[in-house]
Amino acid sequence: MQALTDRSKMVDRKPMTFVERLYLWNIIKGMRITFAHLFRKKVTVKFPEQKRAFSPVFRGLHILNRDEEGRERCTACGLCAVSCPAEAITMEGAERKPGEEHLYREEKYAAKYEINMLRCIFCGFCEEACPKDAIYLTETFAPANYKREGFIYGKDDLLIPDPKTGK
């Protein structure tokens, strides 16, 4: 019969030799392997002191971006919410009033913008869908919380500080 892959191996059904039937020799072989493992390099990462480096494509917690003058880039177009496979993003749009030009870049902005971190699967589709470069995934993850409400991140959690005022 033709083997399907080159990795398949016939099961050895030969009767056991005397040494194998003694069982003792096989135990010693096994013990030698485990003994060698005593001196192997440990794979554990001692977490709080040592942190594993993130991979370059790591996708973590979201941020909402501002432009160079500190104005919010998001226009509440809803493309991120539409593209989100986990339906984690909700938002409410609002119209910019006169005198708020230093706060919002365009005439429409997100009055409310929430991401449910328990639903989010960190796929990064929102980042790709955004036409305004407003949402990005960073290299941190959502910290633990005692309540489910704590995982619903609002605008004040997501917005990065103003580059001019630092707030």
């Binding site: 485990t34 493992h37 005593l38 192997r40 390099k41 440990k42 794979v43 554990t44 001692k46």
Partner: peptide, 9 residues
């Protein structure tokens, strides 16, 4: 010993 044998601390 269990840790060491399993490459842990």
């Amino acid at each position: 010993v269990a840790g060491w044998i399993q490459d842990r601390y």
